[in-house]
Write a protein that binds this DNA or RNA. Sequence first.
DNA 1: AGATGACCGAAATGGTTTTCTGGTCATTTT
DNA 2: AAAATGACCAGAAAACCATTTCGGTCATCT
Lengths: 190, 190
Amino acid sequence: MDRRQEILQSATKSFTLFGYKATTIEQVAKIANVGKGTVYTFFVNKEELFQEVVLNLIDEMKRETDKSIDFNASFMHNAHTALMKMLQFRERHLLFAKLVEEEKELRTPAVKQMLLEIEREIISYISARIQMGIEKDEIIDCNKELVSYMLFKTYLAFIVDWQSTHEEPLKEEDILALFKETIFRGLAKK
Amino acid sequence: MDRRQEILQSATKSFTLFGYKATTIEQVAKIANVGKGTVYTFFVNKEELFQEVVLNLIDEMKRETDKSIDFNASFMHNAHTALMKMLQFRERHLLFAKLVEEEKELRTPAVKQMLLEIEREIISYISARIQMGIEKDEIIDCNKELVSYMLFKTYLAFIVDWQSTHEEPLKEEDILALFKETIFRGLAKK
DNA sequence: AGATGACCGAAATGGTTTTCTGGTCATTTT
DNA sequence: AAAATGACCAGAAAACCATTTCGGTCATCT
Protein backbone atom coordinates (compact mmCIF):
# COMPACT_ATOMS: atom_id res chain seq x y z
CA MET A 1 0.00 0.00 0.00
CA ASP A 2 1.26 3.50 -0.72
CA ARG A 3 2.68 5.54 2.09
CA ARG A 4 -0.06 8.11 2.07
CA GLN A 5 -2.75 5.50 2.62
CA GLU A 6 -0.63 3.87 5.28
CA ILE A 7 -0.34 7.12 7.17
CA LEU A 8 -4.01 7.93 6.81
CA GLN A 9 -4.93 4.56 8.19
CA SER A 10 -2.63 4.85 11.19
CA ALA A 11 -3.94 8.33 11.86
CA THR A 12 -7.53 7.11 11.79
CA LYS A 13 -6.68 4.39 14.25
CA SER A 14 -4.88 6.74 16.59
CA PHE A 15 -7.46 9.54 16.49
CA THR A 16 -10.23 7.05 17.15
CA LEU A 17 -8.34 5.46 20.01
CA PHE A 18 -6.86 8.50 21.72
CA GLY A 19 -8.61 11.58 20.34
CA TYR A 20 -6.99 14.56 18.70
CA LYS A 21 -4.69 15.97 21.31
CA ALA A 22 -3.41 12.69 22.63
CA THR A 23 -2.43 11.60 19.15
CA THR A 24 1.15 12.55 18.30
CA ILE A 25 2.53 12.73 14.83
CA GLU A 26 5.48 10.66 15.90
CA GLN A 27 3.08 7.97 17.07
CA VAL A 28 1.24 7.99 13.77
CA ALA A 29 4.52 7.82 11.88
CA LYS A 30 5.68 4.89 13.93
CA ILE A 31 2.49 2.91 13.38
CA ALA A 32 2.72 3.64 9.68
CA ASN A 33 6.37 2.60 9.65
CA VAL A 34 7.59 5.89 8.24
CA GLY A 35 9.72 8.68 9.57
CA LYS A 36 8.08 11.70 11.14
CA GLY A 37 9.17 13.95 8.31
CA THR A 38 7.42 11.74 5.80
CA VAL A 39 4.05 12.54 7.31
CA TYR A 40 4.73 16.15 6.43
CA THR A 41 5.45 15.39 2.81
CA PHE A 42 1.85 14.23 2.44
CA PHE A 43 -0.03 16.44 4.88
CA VAL A 44 0.72 20.05 5.59
CA ASN A 45 0.09 19.68 9.31
CA LYS A 46 -1.67 17.74 12.02
CA GLU A 47 -4.90 19.63 11.56
CA GLU A 48 -5.18 18.79 7.89
CA LEU A 49 -4.38 15.18 8.52
CA PHE A 50 -7.17 15.16 11.06
CA GLN A 51 -9.51 16.87 8.65
CA GLU A 52 -8.83 14.28 6.00
CA VAL A 53 -9.50 11.45 8.42
CA VAL A 54 -12.81 12.91 9.52
CA LEU A 55 -13.92 13.82 6.02
CA ASN A 56 -13.19 10.28 4.96
CA LEU A 57 -15.41 8.92 7.70
CA ILE A 58 -18.25 11.25 6.82
CA ASP A 59 -17.97 10.24 3.21
CA GLU A 60 -18.10 6.61 4.14
CA MET A 61 -21.24 7.19 6.18
CA LYS A 62 -22.89 9.06 3.37
CA ARG A 63 -22.05 6.36 0.88
CA GLU A 64 -23.31 3.65 3.19
CA THR A 65 -26.51 5.52 3.84
CA ASP A 66 -27.07 6.30 0.20
CA LYS A 67 -26.58 2.67 -0.62
CA SER A 68 -29.34 1.69 1.79
CA ILE A 69 -31.79 4.13 0.30
CA ASP A 70 -34.27 2.89 -2.25
CA PHE A 71 -35.29 5.82 -4.38
CA ASN A 72 -38.57 4.19 -5.25
CA ALA A 73 -39.58 3.40 -1.70
CA SER A 74 -41.53 5.82 0.50
CA PHE A 75 -39.91 8.58 2.52
CA MET A 76 -41.03 6.92 5.70
CA HIS A 77 -39.43 3.66 4.73
CA ASN A 78 -36.18 5.26 3.69
CA ALA A 79 -36.03 7.44 6.76
CA HIS A 80 -36.45 4.28 8.76
CA THR A 81 -33.66 2.35 7.08
CA ALA A 82 -31.33 5.35 6.97
CA LEU A 83 -31.81 5.95 10.67
CA MET A 84 -31.32 2.26 11.33
CA LYS A 85 -28.09 2.36 9.37
CA MET A 86 -26.96 5.33 11.41
CA LEU A 87 -27.77 3.54 14.60
CA GLN A 88 -25.81 0.51 13.54
CA PHE A 89 -22.93 2.85 12.80
CA ARG A 90 -22.81 3.65 16.44
CA GLU A 91 -19.53 1.87 17.00
CA ARG A 92 -18.02 3.55 13.99
CA HIS A 93 -19.20 6.76 15.56
CA LEU A 94 -16.77 6.07 18.35
CA LEU A 95 -14.54 8.69 16.83
CA PHE A 96 -17.32 11.23 16.94
CA ALA A 97 -18.23 10.34 20.49
CA LYS A 98 -14.56 10.60 21.39
CA LEU A 99 -14.37 14.00 19.74
CA VAL A 100 -17.51 15.26 21.43
CA GLU A 101 -16.04 14.27 24.75
CA GLU A 102 -12.68 15.82 23.96
CA GLU A 103 -14.29 19.05 22.89
CA LYS A 104 -16.21 19.12 26.14
CA GLU A 105 -13.23 18.65 28.37
CA LEU A 106 -10.20 19.83 26.48
CA ARG A 107 -11.77 22.55 24.38
CA THR A 108 -9.38 21.85 21.53
CA PRO A 109 -10.22 24.46 18.90
CA ALA A 110 -9.36 22.17 16.00
CA VAL A 111 -11.78 19.61 17.37
CA LYS A 112 -14.56 22.10 17.91
CA GLN A 113 -14.19 23.34 14.38
CA MET A 114 -14.25 19.84 12.96
CA LEU A 115 -17.31 18.97 14.99
CA LEU A 116 -19.11 21.98 13.55
CA GLU A 117 -18.04 20.86 10.11
CA ILE A 118 -19.50 17.41 10.76
CA GLU A 119 -22.72 18.96 11.99
CA ARG A 120 -23.00 21.15 8.91
CA GLU A 121 -22.27 18.22 6.66
CA ILE A 122 -24.81 15.88 8.19
CA ILE A 123 -27.54 18.48 8.46
CA SER A 124 -27.15 19.44 4.85
CA TYR A 125 -27.39 15.78 3.92
CA ILE A 126 -30.59 15.31 5.87
CA SER A 127 -31.92 18.54 4.49
CA ALA A 128 -31.47 17.33 0.93
CA ARG A 129 -33.37 14.13 1.69
CA ILE A 130 -36.21 16.09 3.20
CA GLN A 131 -36.33 18.31 0.16
CA MET A 132 -36.79 15.21 -1.94
CA GLY A 133 -39.60 14.04 0.32
CA ILE A 134 -41.33 17.37 -0.08
CA GLU A 135 -40.93 17.33 -3.83
CA LYS A 136 -42.33 13.84 -4.03
CA ASP A 137 -45.24 15.21 -2.05
CA GLU A 138 -44.76 12.58 0.61
CA ILE A 139 -44.18 14.91 3.50
CA ILE A 140 -45.53 18.28 4.47
CA ASP A 141 -43.88 21.47 3.32
CA CYS A 142 -41.84 22.15 6.45
CA ASN A 143 -38.82 24.29 7.20
CA LYS A 144 -36.23 21.73 6.19
CA GLU A 145 -33.36 23.63 7.82
CA LEU A 146 -35.03 23.47 11.19
CA VAL A 147 -36.35 19.95 10.82
CA SER A 148 -32.90 18.66 9.89
CA TYR A 149 -31.38 20.43 12.84
CA MET A 150 -33.99 18.92 15.07
CA LEU A 151 -33.47 15.42 13.76
CA PHE A 152 -29.73 15.70 14.15
CA LYS A 153 -29.87 17.06 17.67
CA THR A 154 -32.47 14.56 18.76
CA TYR A 155 -30.43 11.73 17.37
CA LEU A 156 -27.36 12.96 19.22
CA ALA A 157 -29.31 13.41 22.41
CA PHE A 158 -30.37 9.79 22.36
CA ILE A 159 -26.99 8.42 21.34
CA VAL A 160 -24.72 10.60 23.43
CA ASP A 161 -26.59 12.42 26.22
CA TRP A 162 -28.93 9.66 27.28
CA GLN A 163 -26.12 7.60 28.76
CA SER A 164 -25.10 10.36 31.13
CA THR A 165 -28.42 10.29 32.96
CA HIS A 166 -29.45 6.69 32.48
CA GLU A 167 -27.76 3.46 33.28
CA GLU A 168 -28.15 1.51 30.06
CA PRO A 169 -28.11 2.86 26.52
CA LEU A 170 -31.34 2.97 24.58
CA LYS A 171 -32.17 0.04 22.40
CA GLU A 172 -32.11 0.75 18.70
CA GLU A 173 -35.67 -0.35 18.19
CA ASP A 174 -36.88 2.05 20.88
CA ILE A 175 -35.18 5.01 19.27
CA LEU A 176 -36.46 3.95 15.90
CA ALA A 177 -40.01 3.53 17.20
CA LEU A 178 -39.92 6.92 18.85
CA PHE A 179 -38.84 8.69 15.69
CA LYS A 180 -41.54 6.92 13.74
CA GLU A 181 -44.24 7.66 16.27
CA THR A 182 -43.43 11.33 16.58
CA ILE A 183 -41.37 13.30 14.10
CA PHE A 184 -41.69 11.08 11.05
CA ARG A 185 -45.37 10.57 11.74
CA GLY A 186 -45.81 14.30 12.08
CA LEU A 187 -44.02 14.98 8.84
CA ALA A 188 -46.02 12.49 6.84
CA LYS A 189 -48.59 13.99 4.56
CA LYS A 190 -52.21 13.23 5.42
CA MET B 1 -38.42 42.79 53.27
CA ASP B 2 -37.09 40.13 55.59
CA ARG B 3 -33.41 39.32 55.50
CA ARG B 4 -33.89 35.83 54.16
CA GLN B 5 -35.76 37.10 51.11
CA GLU B 6 -33.21 39.83 50.65
CA ILE B 7 -30.39 37.31 50.58
CA LEU B 8 -32.24 34.97 48.28
CA GLN B 9 -32.82 37.77 45.85
CA SER B 10 -29.22 38.91 45.82
CA ALA B 11 -28.10 35.33 45.38
CA THR B 12 -30.40 34.88 42.40
CA LYS B 13 -29.05 38.01 40.83
CA SER B 14 -25.45 37.01 41.39
CA PHE B 15 -25.81 33.40 40.24
CA THR B 16 -27.60 34.55 37.12
CA LEU B 17 -24.99 37.15 36.37
CA PHE B 18 -21.79 35.31 37.23
CA GLY B 19 -22.63 31.62 37.60
CA TYR B 20 -22.03 29.41 40.59
CA LYS B 21 -18.30 29.49 41.10
CA ALA B 22 -17.80 33.15 40.41
CA THR B 23 -20.43 34.06 42.96
CA THR B 24 -18.93 34.59 46.39
CA ILE B 25 -20.88 34.56 49.59
CA GLU B 26 -19.30 37.83 50.60
CA GLN B 27 -20.55 39.36 47.38
CA VAL B 28 -24.07 38.10 47.99
CA ALA B 29 -23.96 39.41 51.55
CA LYS B 30 -22.83 42.81 50.40
CA ILE B 31 -25.59 43.14 47.81
CA ALA B 32 -28.11 42.08 50.43
CA ASN B 33 -26.66 44.56 52.89
CA VAL B 34 -25.96 41.97 55.55
CA GLY B 35 -22.82 40.55 57.10
CA LYS B 36 -21.37 37.37 55.72
CA GLY B 37 -22.24 35.44 58.87
CA THR B 38 -25.88 36.33 58.48
CA VAL B 39 -26.10 34.37 55.24
CA TYR B 40 -25.14 31.32 57.25
CA THR B 41 -27.88 31.81 59.79
CA PHE B 42 -30.41 31.26 57.00
CA PHE B 43 -28.66 28.81 54.70
CA VAL B 44 -26.38 26.01 55.78
CA ASN B 45 -23.93 26.56 52.94
CA LYS B 46 -23.39 27.92 49.47
CA GLU B 47 -24.70 24.80 47.81
CA GLU B 48 -28.02 24.90 49.61
CA LEU B 49 -28.44 28.56 48.90
CA PHE B 50 -27.88 27.75 45.26
CA GLN B 51 -30.32 24.89 45.41
CA GLU B 52 -33.00 27.11 46.88
CA VAL B 53 -32.47 29.70 44.17
CA VAL B 54 -32.78 27.13 41.41
CA LEU B 55 -35.72 25.35 42.96
CA ASN B 56 -37.48 28.69 43.27
CA LEU B 57 -37.03 29.34 39.60
CA ILE B 58 -38.30 25.93 38.62
CA ASP B 59 -41.30 26.38 40.85
CA GLU B 60 -42.03 29.72 39.34
CA MET B 61 -41.89 28.23 35.89
CA LYS B 62 -44.19 25.42 36.83
CA ARG B 63 -46.69 27.77 38.42
CA GLU B 64 -46.63 30.07 35.43
CA THR B 65 -47.08 27.19 33.04
CA ASP B 66 -49.85 25.62 35.07
CA LYS B 67 -51.62 28.93 35.18
CA SER B 68 -51.58 29.11 31.41
CA ILE B 69 -53.05 25.65 30.99
CA ASP B 70 -56.76 25.26 30.45
CA PHE B 71 -57.77 21.83 31.59
CA ASN B 72 -60.75 21.81 29.29
CA ALA B 73 -58.86 22.81 26.19
CA SER B 74 -57.24 20.30 23.85
CA PHE B 75 -53.78 18.86 24.39
CA MET B 76 -52.56 20.52 21.25
CA HIS B 77 -53.78 23.88 22.38
CA ASN B 78 -52.28 23.53 25.82
CA ALA B 79 -49.00 22.26 24.49
CA HIS B 80 -48.91 25.30 22.30
CA THR B 81 -49.53 27.80 25.07
CA ALA B 82 -47.25 26.03 27.52
CA LEU B 83 -44.42 26.02 25.02
CA MET B 84 -45.12 29.65 24.24
CA LYS B 85 -44.92 30.47 27.91
CA MET B 86 -41.61 28.64 28.15
CA LEU B 87 -40.26 30.55 25.22
CA GLN B 88 -41.21 33.83 26.77
CA PHE B 89 -39.31 32.72 29.84
CA ARG B 90 -36.19 32.65 27.77
CA GLU B 91 -34.57 35.58 29.52
CA ARG B 92 -35.40 34.08 32.86
CA HIS B 93 -33.73 30.96 31.60
CA LEU B 94 -30.53 32.94 31.46
CA LEU B 95 -29.54 31.28 34.68
CA PHE B 96 -29.95 27.88 33.11
CA ALA B 97 -28.00 28.88 30.05
CA LYS B 98 -25.28 30.26 32.30
CA LEU B 99 -25.20 27.05 34.28
CA VAL B 100 -25.04 24.90 31.18
CA GLU B 101 -22.06 26.90 30.05
CA GLU B 102 -20.38 26.74 33.42
CA GLU B 103 -20.87 23.01 33.63
CA LYS B 104 -19.30 22.64 30.21
CA GLU B 105 -16.19 24.60 30.99
CA LEU B 106 -15.63 24.47 34.72
CA ARG B 107 -17.14 21.09 35.50
CA THR B 108 -18.39 22.31 38.85
CA PRO B 109 -19.92 19.23 40.49
CA ALA B 110 -22.57 21.21 42.33
CA VAL B 111 -23.67 22.72 39.05
CA LYS B 112 -23.74 19.42 37.23
CA GLN B 113 -25.86 17.91 39.96
CA MET B 114 -28.27 20.82 39.91
CA LEU B 115 -28.56 20.65 36.15
CA LEU B 116 -29.50 16.99 36.36
CA GLU B 117 -32.03 17.88 39.03
CA ILE B 118 -33.55 20.49 36.74
CA GLU B 119 -33.67 18.02 33.89
CA ARG B 120 -35.38 15.41 36.03
CA GLU B 121 -37.85 17.94 37.33
CA ILE B 122 -38.84 19.31 33.96
CA ILE B 123 -39.04 15.95 32.26
CA SER B 124 -41.28 14.57 34.96
CA TYR B 125 -43.50 17.60 34.58
CA ILE B 126 -43.80 17.13 30.84
CA SER B 127 -44.29 13.44 31.33
CA ALA B 128 -47.28 14.01 33.58
CA ARG B 129 -48.89 16.29 31.00
CA ILE B 130 -48.40 13.70 28.31
CA GLN B 131 -49.94 11.05 30.53
CA MET B 132 -53.00 13.26 30.81
CA GLY B 133 -53.15 13.62 27.07
CA ILE B 134 -53.02 9.88 26.65
CA GLU B 135 -55.72 9.34 29.23
CA LYS B 136 -57.95 11.88 27.57
CA ASP B 137 -57.36 9.88 24.40
CA GLU B 138 -56.11 12.97 22.65
CA ILE B 139 -52.68 11.69 21.79
CA ILE B 140 -51.31 8.32 20.84
CA ASP B 141 -50.12 5.88 23.45
CA CYS B 142 -46.41 6.68 23.23
CA ASN B 143 -43.45 6.09 25.52
CA LYS B 144 -43.92 9.20 27.62
CA GLU B 145 -40.47 8.93 29.20
CA LEU B 146 -38.78 9.09 25.85
CA VAL B 147 -41.10 11.66 24.35
CA SER B 148 -40.56 13.98 27.31
CA TYR B 149 -36.84 13.56 27.04
CA MET B 150 -37.01 14.35 23.38
CA LEU B 151 -39.13 17.44 23.88
CA PHE B 152 -36.83 18.71 26.56
CA LYS B 153 -33.66 18.14 24.58
CA THR B 154 -35.12 19.58 21.43
CA TYR B 155 -36.25 22.66 23.27
CA LEU B 156 -32.77 23.11 24.75
CA ALA B 157 -31.15 22.56 21.38
CA PHE B 158 -33.15 25.40 19.89
CA ILE B 159 -32.76 27.75 22.82
CA VAL B 160 -29.14 27.08 23.75
CA ASP B 161 -27.24 25.26 20.99
CA TRP B 162 -28.68 27.05 18.00
CA GLN B 163 -26.90 30.29 18.88
CA SER B 164 -23.50 28.66 18.79
CA THR B 165 -23.79 27.81 15.11
CA HIS B 166 -26.08 30.56 13.89
CA GLU B 167 -25.86 34.28 14.09
CA GLU B 168 -29.29 35.24 15.32
CA PRO B 169 -31.50 33.34 17.75
CA LEU B 170 -34.57 31.61 16.41
CA LYS B 171 -37.81 33.48 16.47
CA GLU B 172 -40.37 32.17 18.91
CA GLU B 173 -42.97 31.65 16.25
CA ASP B 174 -40.59 29.53 14.20
CA ILE B 175 -39.84 27.23 17.08
CA LEU B 176 -43.49 27.03 17.93
CA ALA B 177 -44.46 26.25 14.35
CA LEU B 178 -41.82 23.57 14.10
CA PHE B 179 -43.01 21.78 17.22
CA LYS B 180 -46.57 21.91 15.99
CA GLU B 181 -45.71 20.67 12.52
CA THR B 182 -43.64 17.78 13.71
CA ILE B 183 -43.72 16.33 17.19
CA PHE B 184 -47.10 17.61 18.35
CA ARG B 185 -48.63 16.76 15.01
CA GLY B 186 -47.14 13.31 15.20
CA LEU B 187 -48.45 12.75 18.68
CA ALA B 188 -51.98 13.85 17.89
CA LYS B 189 -54.43 11.05 17.55
CA LYS B 190 -55.46 10.77 13.90
C1' DA C 1 14.18 13.12 -5.42
C1' DG C 2 12.22 11.38 -1.63
C1' DA C 3 12.73 9.96 3.09
C1' DT C 4 14.47 10.77 7.56
C1' DG C 5 15.34 11.98 12.44
C1' DA C 6 18.00 15.48 15.16
C1' DC C 7 16.76 19.83 16.35
C1' DC C 8 14.03 24.16 17.60
C1' DG C 9 10.65 27.00 19.83
C1' DA C 10 6.17 27.20 21.46
C1' DA C 11 3.01 25.08 24.24
C1' DA C 12 1.76 21.79 27.78
C1' DT C 13 2.77 19.72 32.30
C1' DG C 14 3.80 19.35 37.06
C1' DG C 15 5.11 20.98 41.36
C1' DT C 16 5.46 24.87 44.56
C1' DT C 17 4.09 29.19 46.54
C1' DT C 18 0.71 32.63 47.14
C1' DT C 19 -3.99 34.25 47.14
C1' DC C 20 -8.74 33.61 47.69
C1' DT C 21 -13.03 32.14 49.71
C1' DG C 22 -16.37 29.01 52.15
C1' DG C 23 -17.41 28.44 56.58
C1' DT C 24 -16.81 29.30 61.91
C1' DC C 25 -17.18 31.68 66.12
C1' DA C 26 -15.88 35.13 69.64
C1' DT C 27 -17.43 39.63 70.02
C1' DT C 28 -20.70 43.36 69.25
C1' DT C 29 -25.25 45.25 68.45
C1' DT C 30 -30.06 45.45 69.10
C1' DA D 1 -30.86 37.06 75.17
C1' DA D 2 -31.04 36.71 70.43
C1' DA D 3 -29.38 38.07 66.23
C1' DA D 4 -25.80 40.01 63.44
C1' DT D 5 -21.18 40.58 62.29
C1' DG D 6 -16.42 40.44 60.37
C1' DA D 7 -11.70 38.71 61.75
C1' DC D 8 -9.91 34.44 61.24
C1' DC D 9 -8.70 29.65 59.58
C1' DA D 10 -8.04 25.71 56.56
C1' DG D 11 -8.39 23.99 52.35
C1' DA D 12 -9.12 25.00 47.48
C1' DA D 13 -7.87 27.63 43.53
C1' DA D 14 -4.71 30.64 41.03
C1' DA D 15 -0.21 32.24 39.80
C1' DC D 16 4.23 31.21 38.96
C1' DC D 17 8.13 28.93 37.22
C1' DA D 18 11.05 24.96 35.84
C1' DT D 19 10.95 21.17 33.01
C1' DT D 20 9.17 18.25 29.38
C1' DT D 21 6.65 17.31 25.25
C1' DC D 22 5.50 17.72 20.53
C1' DG D 23 4.36 19.99 16.03
C1' DG D 24 6.96 21.38 12.42
C1' DT D 25 11.62 22.25 9.82
C1' DC D 26 15.61 21.17 7.32
C1' DA D 27 20.34 19.48 6.65
C1' DT D 28 21.70 15.05 5.67
C1' DC D 29 21.27 10.52 3.88
C1' DT D 30 19.65 6.91 0.74
